[in-house]
């Protein structure tokens, strides 16, 4: 077991897959000589050359489309979109094309492509650079959407995504890049898609999260544990396929469910899970399902406003305590 940052774990997964399979290549803005806007691909251009670590112009629609066309020929492109905010100019390629091709061509051809892209807020990047849009994509059949929240998952899930024969939107997180964690020593370590993880056991409330919000959820659980309240934290890891069973098993045990996410909860991950928990755990619930997300405003610049818009630990904890109070605890 070695300690690595989330960024280094991603880089190691890319390096391993580039070394393992000559059909794997990387494509994106500034990923070569510049080493990636967030340095995930540092050193790979030097190691693998410009054909396998392909620098692109600022043409998201163009190079996401090119990734699709290369994937249809059996290559395994790993396309980097500098941040998830910029994927919107390539939305047509992702939703109308990558997600549809296998089906509308009757299964004759697939798109084994990964789009890696970080989301998240907290560094005063403002309205156009702070979004968490993964739920928009997770609602669309034909693609898979994952969002690892740990160093080991970043490594293991990226390798699985690259080997997958379907298009995968691999959501990273800007704040997570510098988070350190333990990496398994096994070079064949992979993590299957569609499996959530109970990352902290508890008996009083189930707190479901994905990506960086899992870290916040764990800190909330630690804080509330000091008051004798034990929160079970479920890391979704994968939004589509979604592991609703693990969530339901946990809620049946705790009888309370809170879903936290950095994106907007309305029509979001929390909305989807609340509907499922309602159906699966109707008789087990001691309180209505609660959701907490980013404030439903475009992200402001000024620090006090940005903090007010984020689903910080304090906001998640308040939601958790409110839920417990509704069912007669605390």
């Amino acid at each position: 077991m070695a300690d690595l940052t989330y960024r280094e774990a991603l880089r190691r997964a890319l390096d391993d897959e580039l070394a393992r399979d000559p059909d794997v290549f990387l494509m994106g803005e500034e990923i070569g000589r510049f080493e990636g806007s967030y340095k995930v691909t540092a050193g790979l251009w030097q190691k693998y050359g410009p054909e396998r670590v392909r620098e692109t112009p600022i043409s998201e629609e163009g190079f996401v489309g090119a990734g699709i066309g290369a994937a249809m020929m059996g290559l395994r492109p790993v396309v980097e979109i500098m941040t998830i905010n910029f994927i919107l100019v390539a939305m047509d390629q992702v939703i109308n094309h990558a997600a549809k091709i296998r089906y509308m061509f009757g299964g004759a051809v697939g798109v084994p492509m990964v789009i890696r892209t970080p989301g998240g807020a907290g560094a005063q990047l403002t309205a156009q650079h702070s979004q968490s849009l993964e739920a928009w994509f997770a609602g669309c059949p034909g693609i898979k959407v994952v969002a690892p929240a740990s160093v080991a998952d970043a490594y293991g899930m990226l390798k699985t995504a690259i080997r997958d024969d379907d298009p995968v939107l691999f959501c990273e997180n800007l704040v997570m890049y510098n988070v350190t964690g333990t990496m398994p020593d096994d070079p064949d370590y992979t993590v299957p898609l569609g499996r959530a993880a109970v990352v902290r056991e508890g008996s009083d409330l189930t707190l479901v999260a994905h990506s960086y919000t899992v870290q916040r959820a764990l800190r909330v659980a630690d804080t509330m544990s000091r008051d004798g309240i034990e929160i079970e934290v479920v890391d979704l890891r994968s939004l589509r396929p979604l592991d609703a069973e693990t969530v339901a098993e946990s809620v049946r045990k705790t009888s309370r469910a809170l879903i936290a996410e950095e994106g907007w909860s309305t029509y979001g991950v929390g909305a989807e899970l609340a509907a499922r928990i309602h159906r699966l755990c109707f008789d087990d619930l001691d309180a209505p399902v609660e959701r907490v997300g980013g404030a439903e405003v475009p992200m402001p610049y000024s620090k006090p406003l940005e903090l007010a818009a984020l689903p910080l630990e304090s906001k998640i904890e308040a939601a958790a305590r409110g839920l417990l109070a509704e069912s007669g605890i605390a």
Partner: peptide, 13 residues
């Protein structure tokens, strides 16, 4: 929209 995709197929060739 298929022009970038066709371009990617040329890239694969």
């Amino acid at each position: 929209a298929h022009l970038p995709i066709a371009t990617g197929t040329a890239l694969a060739l």
